[in-house]
């Protein structure tokens, strides 16, 4: 369950500064906790749950912003705008559709895109809302392509391409196909959500397929 109960309530006055550092250096926070924390913010307007989320994500969003903008002022503007959206729109978060970190990342990406657009003062152009669907595409019949790859084929034909995979995907492919670990075992071992394990496997397989037959342009 949520560790939030242990955190001092922030309702009455400013919390002590060390709170921030304590939660940032906490070693193990799984994405499940973030989903719960965000759900608490949505349903109960839980300020301490929000503070936990903020303390964890704000510095990471800033690092992302620094990489994208290359300057601190804009990076912080992006963090503020993103985290304000997280606070205001928490009620729109739906844990069944994806994890909290994905939701927060997409908000940051859209904020950043629209910041760049406004800087160039073009109000009617392509906006983040045009480019990225806010929500889910309707369910389609399952794409069976990926599951048709059998392990033997992978071993024989694709092995030479393993090295071309991004490290995070290669690591997971090796654990699943070479060490024959279950998706859940890999998720536990690397402390990443199960959904991310599955995503990375699909991405790696598609990348290998692309390397093999060059189907994509």
């Amino acid at each position: 369950m949520l560790k939030l109960a242990k955190v001092a309530r922030h309702d009455r006055g400013s919390p002590p500064k060390q709170d921030t550092q304590a939660s940032m250096s906490r070693p193990e926070i799984t994405n499940n906790n973030w989903d719960e924390a965000l759900t608490f913010v949505a349903l109960q307007r839980d300020r301490s749950a929000y503070a936990e989320l903020f303390n964890y994500f704000a510095p990471r969003l800033k690092a992302f912003g620094m990489k994208m903008f290359g300057n601190e002022q804009q990076a912080l503007e992006m963090v503020q705008d993103t985290m304000l959206n997280v606070w205001k729109k928490a009620v729109l978060f739906d844990a069944s559709r994806g994890c909290a970190s994905t939701w927060i990342f997409t908000i940051a990406r859209n904020v950043r895109f629209d910041m760049l657009r406004k800087k160039q003062s073009r109000k009617d152009d392509v906006s983040a809302d045009d480019l990225w669907l806010n929500g889910e595409y309707p369910e389609q019949e399952a794409d069976t392509d990926t599951s048709q790859w059998d392990t033997q084929l992978l071993m024989d034909k694709l092995a030479p391409y393993f090295t071309s995979l991004p490290p995070a995907q290669r690591e997971i492919i090796e654990k699943v196909y070479l060490q024959e670990k279950s998706h859940q075992e890999v998720s536990d071992e690397l402390a990443i959500p199960l959904g991310t394990v599955k995503s990375r496997i699909r991405l790696a397989l598609d990348r290998l397929r692309e390397a093999l037959d060059g189907a994509r342009n």
């Binding site: 940032m24 964890y56 994905t102 990342f105 959904g195 991310t196 995503s199």
Partner: peptide, 21 residues
């Protein structure tokens, strides 16, 4: 969707230094 999940996980997992903000 998979790529977005992956990128978001990278964002959430990156180590950060404490800073003066």
């Amino acid at each position: 969707r998979d790529i977005t999940t992956d990128l978001a996980c990278q964002l959430a997992q990156q180590p950060v230094k404490t800073n003066n903000t």
